[in-house]
Design a protein around this nucleic acid. Structure first.
Length: 783
DNA sequence: AGCCTCCTAATTTTT
DNA sequence: TTAGGAGGCT
């Protein structure tokens, strides 16, 4: 092999020459099924784009004969950029290079009539969906308390992910949502069709259904798409998988790139099985492993490898790097979340000028990756206090803001008069004196005549069902909509002018202006509206803009100022940073208890992959931290270090924990015949004598005690029973001592929880098992 | 229609 | 603890 490569080398174009051997193989194997197993940081995007370009350069396919899909807009954007760079030309015209959803939307608009839709159908977001579900649920007289709309939404979404239509929904799913799921699903789909709308799931499902039902159509596209490229294959769900199988069925020229170790979206329908099964799905598939990591140092990679090796269910890869050594993964424990945030904040400050013999780091080189978004708060609080610039990635989005959604509803109504949801949203915003009763009449009218709400409203005016002030206002609105729509279609006004005028003439901007001295955020909202209009300039027409915002919900990122990034581990996939902080590595938080409870070993393995993703984001410096007690929903809970820490080989860890502070457990000390009371009441400092905590007996004990942890399969439960608690370790009015809060008195006991009043810290709610961190003050005296 | 109070639930989230 | 929703009251 090496020889052939050497011979070929001078002939290879530069975009291939610069690849390593397996990457080259992945690019050059154009014919037949290829699975590229690309570990973290192994240059898969580089290989994927090179392959795309190679297909064009060799004349194997025209741009529009390659079906190339990614999951996120970010990934699609990057791929387009890189392909464009390599080709030295604009790539915008490449029709089938994009996200699954955008590519399917394109397909569906082209063949809308086959799916019973008009080509200008609306793509609904979750908010729209939820409102429809609520209406349906109300109509069915279902108690929303017990059967929330969100549950129905997720049930149906789940079905769509698995390619279940109301018609082919298996009987085994019948009992979902109180046995009404199927019927509500069917009603929902009817409703969508009548609205000339699709939800996200439909974009994919409808394409698959169309292709399955129309042999001709399928053959046409099988022929058109000579090559198929798929990014992040481990994240594909059933529908996506079916779509790919359908399209590739003929020539089998399908190249999927993925990493089973980075599959972290099982909870939203991704099937790791798809990647594990590739070989049996596609005969004679070529499996290529990209294992050379270009991102992280040797030690970071070794630590990550240690963690992921604990998973049983994986194809297996061995990442390696030519870089040697590096900083060991730093591990540090703290008392609680507040101190953890303070330490990390201080450390980042110090890193900017250089600390602990490390190089200097810019803020933008540093990120904090958390398991759950509520963890971000402690950091935001701290950073706001110290004035450290930070940026939260994946926060609330521009297009989800109230005023932006309102404005978009106006736009939608201009483009598609059948968009009842949009009508609903803006009919009385701003107030037009069209309250419940008027809207009821409009709805009634539309239903009877089987017309859109807009036409129903028109009808109400003609037949004088609505009168007075409301009628005048309604007439004004309808006339404005009609006039602007007409002018837009005729080309008299641009989509931008249309947008400006509808917001102006409908009174929408005026509404916010008049609110300006009443609500503090009105100014910001007007700003957002301006920004929205400005955003329109990038599009040729309103339809294109609406498509964009439906599919691309991204917020504009400001990159001017140096900032620390805070985000969830999920949001961090695909990113890399020189320095990464991974706080909250405690059992129950990470791995998340819920994940383990709900999905057992499968859930635990996905959590571990998340840990792997986290560590592999770091290029040079990775710092993991955990706390002894954390406030969860206002109650203090004791915690032990995450079991994932056990998976990191000790030789790659540097422990920064102050002696005595790590996963410090009071009960452990009790068991261990504490030398004297001073150790307890006073301080940690007395334990400072112990040099390396990680090697200390205490640490080992912690490890041993953790070994008794059962796998989730066997169920993880508190070993403390109510009976034990009642049997009276604690009673109301007992004087107690807490490791952090000091002395206090028990005010109330309930189940295993306790309300305690502390001399210094005031009243606290402590959650079971309280004996983990409370001790009777009397027993202290005894010691 | 808007404000207030009570209740409940609480990972991850792209498209 | 807190945020968001529902339901009630003015």
């Amino acid at each position: 092999m090496r020889k052939d490569q050497d011979l070929l080398e001078p002939l290879l174009p530069p975009y291939i020459r610069e690849l390593n051997e397996p990457q080259q193989e992945a690019v050059l194997s154009l014919i037949g099924p290829v699975l590229m197993l690309a570990g973290a940081g192994t240059g898969k995007t580089k290989a994927l784009t090179a392959r795309f370009v190679h297909l064009l350069k060799t004349g194997s396919a025209h741009p529009n004969e390659i079906f190339a899909v990614t999951f996120t807009n970010k990934a699609a954007f990057e791929m387009k950029n890189r392909v464009g760079d390599l080709l030295g030309r604009n790539v915008e015209g490449f029709k089938w290079l994009g996200t699954f959803h955008s590519v399917c939307a394109r397909f569906l608009r082209k063949h809308a009539e086959l799916a019973g839709l008009e080509p200008n159908f609306t793509i609904l977001d979750t908010d729209d969906q939820l409102r429809i579900f609520k209406q349906l649920i109300q109509a069915e007289n279902i108690d929303e308390k017990n059967w929330p709309a969100r549950l129905l939404a997720s049930t149906i979404d789940n079905w769509k992910n698995r390619a279940f239509t109301p018609e082919n929904l298996p009987m085994s799913e019948n009992d979902k949502y109180d046995g009404l799921g199927r019927s509500l699903y069917a009603q929902y789909q009817d409703r969508l069709t009548r609205l000339n709308a699709c939800d996200f799931g439909d974009l994919l499902l409808k394409v698959v259904t169309l292709l399955q039902a129309n042999k001709d159509l399928l053959q046409r596209y099988q022929k058109l798409f000579k090559y198929i490229l798929v990014d992040e294959y481990q994240d594909t769900n059933v529908v996506q998988y079916l779509l790919l199988r359908l399209l590739a069925a003929g020539h089998q020229n399908i190249c999927c790139v993925g990493d089973d170790d980075q599959s972290i979206y099982g909870w939203r329908g991704a099937e790791v099985g798809n990647i594990l099964r590739f070989e049996s799905d596609f005969k004679d598939a070529k499996i290529i492993r990209l294992e050379q990591n270009y991102r992280s140092t040797e030690y970071i990679l070794a630590a990550a490898t240690g963690v992921i090796s604990a998973n049983k269910n994986r194809l297996g890869k061995t990442l390696w790097t030519s870089s040697k050594g590096g900083e060991r993964v730093r591990l540090i424990g703290h008392w609680d979340g507040g101190e953890e945030a303070i330490w990390i904040s201080d450390e980042i400050e110090a890193m900017q000028v250089g600390t602990r013999g490390l190089r200097k780091y810019n803020l933008s080189e540093v990120s904090i990756l958390v398991r759950a978004s509520h963890q971000m708060r402690a950091f935001e609080d701290r950073f706001l206090k110290t004035g450290l610039p930070y940026r939260v990635i994946g926060g609330p989005r521009f297009y989800e803001r109230l005023e932006v959604r309102d404005a978009i509803a106006y736009f939608r109504l201009l483009v598609s008069s059948r968009d009842d949801l949009a009508f609903d949203r803006i009919i009385n915003t701003p107030k037009r004196g069209l309250g419940d009763s008027a809207q009821q009449k409009i709805r009634e009218n539309s239903r009877v005549a089987d017309k859109s709400l807009l036409d129903g409203a028109r009808e109400c005016l003609l037949s004088n069902k609505i009168s007075g002030k409301g009628a005048t206002q309604l007439r004004l609105l309808l006339d404005t909509l009609d006039r602007l729509r007409k002018m837009y279609i005729q080309g008299t006004i641009s989509h931008i002018e249309m947008a400006e005028q509808i917001l102006e003439e409908s009174g929408y901007t005026r509404m916010w202006m008049s609110l300006q001295d009443k609500t503090p955020d009105a100014g910001g909202r007007l700003e957002n509206l301006k920004e929205l209009i400005k955003g329109l300039e990038e599009f040729e027409n309103m339809e294109g803009f609406l498509e964009h915002i439906a599919l691309v919900m991204e917020n504009s990122t400001d990159n001017e100022v140096e900032k620390v990034s805070i985000m969830t581990l999920h949001a961090a996939k695909g990113l890399e940073f020189p320095a990464v902080f991974l706080p909250g590595w405690e059992d129950g938080l990470f791995p998340s208890q819920r994940s383990m409870d709900e999905s057992g070993v499968k859930g635990l393995e996905e959590e571990r992959r998340l840990a792997y993703v986290g560590i592999t984001r770091a290029e040079e410096l990775c710092t993991i931290s955990f706390v002894g007690s954390r406030q969860v929903y206002g109650q203090w809970q004791s915690a032990i270090p995450s079991r994932f820490i056990d998976n990191i080989p000790v030789e790659y860890i540097e422990n920064l924990t102050l002696p005595g502070l790590y996963g410090y457990q009071l009960d452990e000390r009790i068991n261990q015949d504490i030398d004297n009371a001073a150790t307890l009441s006073d301080d940690i400092q007395s334990r400072a004598a112990m040099a390396d905590v990680y090697q200390s007996p205490g640490w080992r004990r912690l490890q041993n005690s953790k070994k008794t942890h059962k796998d989730p399969k066997v169920e993880i439960k508190s070993s403390i029973t109510d009976a034990e608690i009642l049997s009276g370790r604690f009673l109301v009015d007992d004087k107690v001592f807490h490791q952090k809060f000091g002395y206090g008195v028990i005010l109330a006991l309930d189940g295993g929880n306790a309300d305690v009043f502390f001399e210094k810290a005031g009243e606290k709610k402590l959650r079971a098992p309280i004996e983990k961190y409370l001790i009777l003050a009397d027993s202290l005296d005894e010691l």
